[in-house]
Amino acid sequence: MSKGYKLLILAACTLALLVVSLGAYTRLSNAGLGCPDWPGCYGFLTVPNESHELTIVEKNFPNAQVEPKKAWIEMVHRYFASLLGLMIVALCIVAFRQRTNKNHKQVVVPFKHALLLMAMVLFQGLLGMWTVTMNLQPFVVMGHLLGGFTILALLVLMYLRVHQPADVTAPSITGHFLLAIIGLVVLVIQIALGGWVAANYAAPHCSGLPVCSNIELFSLESLFHLPIGQSNYEFGVLPFETRLSIHFIHRIWAMVTALTLIWVGWKIYRAELSSKIRSAVILVSCVLFAQLFLGGLIVHLQFPLLLTLFHNVMAALLLLSMVRLCFLLAAKQGATI
């Protein structure tokens, strides 16, 4: 495994985190439809601002009004996402060319892993297109968010795999690894619920701590009121009580997630498997408590944009810390994930 390939993976991980952050900022600043077409912006590679360009926009998009700030937010996100896609293509090409060593006995780069990443990037590109062409349909928006998190997690997992010791033997999966997987699944559900809150613009509809100030409007039945059949979903289309219920379910599952990760972390920490695994548990715990604090602070301060953005970034970091813990537990027993 060349040092350059490892650096390319690390650069892709860093860029993926940036792309996820830019995607969150695009959603939070209501810039998802800053450019009503895809992949360009009103038919241009950059945001149109010259008089002749605006004339073309007026002709081709008669009902549109160019908002340069929102358009640039959207386009910057697309530029960085495209760059990430190119980097993943490069990772896949190198993995294919160097997938075995000279004796053709040992895999030295995770080619299947790179191939999965490539497939995810292509699907994520489709989701990005549908997000715009379907006018922020919440199911598509949530899928786009989860796709970004998945690509980020796969890149970090690839980085961990290329640094895995080569002398592991006798692979077996222990109960501690299964516990960590349970914690990871619970966390992914919470991230999906957070994406559903964001996709339906439901965050401000549940103010107050620890429960919504207007909790009497909560209804499990209203959760089945789906956002479908609309021509435009910007700023949300669901009734107030439905959005309140969506947000409150997100809060309830946040408590389930916190208790699950604390329990899982305690069980693994007590096992004294290794100092590295103990450190990984501590990292998960620190990010978890920071995320809980941020969630409460955001509600208390009435959902400021930058703090809400940081809440999204912390969710990504919590996911990555759990992926690392799962990887270390698997590697401890000579297995790979």
Rank of each mutant, 00 (worst) to 15 (best):
P304M: 02
V94D: 08
Q137T: 09
L115K: 06
A271P: 12
H176R: 04
A316D: 04
G175M: 02
M142D: 09
A271F: 09
V94H: 08
E74G: 08
Y5P: 00
S29W: 06
P68R: 12
M129T: 03
G236E: 07
N63Q: 15
M87Y: 03
E58D: 12
A81M: 05
E74V: 00
L7V: 06
I337S: 02
F177I: 03
V256Y: 00
H163K: 09
I337R: 02
R243P: 05
Y42D: 15
T174M: 05
P304A: 05
G194F: 10
V186T: 09
N63T: 14
Q65W: 02
R99T: 04
V140W: 03
V186G: 03
Q291Y: 06
L28T: 08
L116W: 15
H300C: 06
K69M: 13
R243T: 15
F240M: 13
P110F: 03
L217G: 00
E53P: 15
H113Q: 09
L84K: 05
G128A: 04
I56A: 14
G236W: 10
G125R: 06
L317Q: 04
R97K: 11
P138W: 11
S213N: 14
T174D: 11
V186P: 05
L318S: 11
H163N: 14
L10H: 04
Q137N: 14
I151C: 10
P165D: 00
A170H: 02
L307N: 09
K112G: 11
G32L: 10
I56V: 14
E67T: 09
P227L: 05
A180D: 02
Y79W: 12
C92Y: 05
V76F: 06
V140M: 12
L297A: 12
M120I: 10
P204A: 09
M255I: 10
F248R: 01
M314Y: 08
L83I: 15
I277Y: 02
N30D: 14
G34S: 12
L261P: 07
G183Y: 01
P39V: 09
N101E: 07
I191P: 04
L273A: 06
L115P: 11
W253F: 15
G85V: 08
M134L: 15
T26G: 04
L155I: 09
V20D: 02
V256M: 03
A114R: 08
A95P: 03
V94I: 13
P227E: 09
V141C: 02
Q291W: 07
K105M: 04
H225Q: 14
G195L: 07
I249S: 06
Q124V: 12
L10A: 13
V211T: 13
I93W: 01
E67I: 13
H77G: 06
L220Y: 13
R97D: 00
T169F: 01
L318Y: 01
Q137C: 03
L294K: 01
L145Y: 15
L136S: 04
L292M: 13
I189T: 03
L320A: 15
